[in-house]
Amino acid sequence: MGMAAESQFHVLAVDDSIIDRKLIERLLKTSSYQVTTVDSGSKALEFLGLCENDQNHHTSTNIPSVFPNNHQDVEVNLVITDYCMPGMTGYDLLKKIKESSSLRNIPVVIMSSENVPSRINRCLEEGAEEFFLKPVRLSDLSRLKPHMKKNKVKDPRNETEEKIENSEILLQQEAPKSQYSHSESESQSQLQAHSTIDQQQQPLQQNNNNNKRKSMEQQGLSSETDRTRQRYSGIATVV
């Protein structure tokens, strides 16, 4: 069905329902994607190699402070997540990915069984690429492909712009960024050092997030949201 060229793309699918995990896995595999499924947002972050430091979250107690980083070498080209999950919702997961300098380039797609416009807009404004209504169908999956390409071929010019624009928080972003490019031969102690930095800056990053968004809006970068919104309005008429 799918083309061989797509087989290199790896999708991380997140859903608390075992039926929906089975379904999305089959849909993606039929479309020739490599698939990993997990049942919660925190496991998704764990797979992506991001430390989760939210103390209020009940599962965080089970997660060691330093991840083995087994997955640093596994590139994830797209995350597709259910919206409504106990504990960390798909929206929370989206925010955590977009707040992380090492993960923010990974496109995120949200799935939900409910057609709530305010929810959909909130997700798109937070940086989701697409919003799929459940149950997801084979025909929906064609909408994933353009986002894969975008992630694969990173535009170095955009990265520079990003650095200047976010100079305020550049210091905090530097560490995880370098962590992202670590080879798997990296020693455990170095990874530990980065993880510690990661933990310390978590609250700072969250505080700065509002500023970051504000500055993005001021520089007219909200065209991104406009574009995705426009695309959704096309979908809404179909549903």
Binding site: S17, I19, D20, L23, S113, K134, P135
Partner: peptide, 8 residues
Amino acid sequence: KGSSASIG
């Protein structure tokens, strides 16, 4: 509702 919708 979600699981029944998913299998039709």
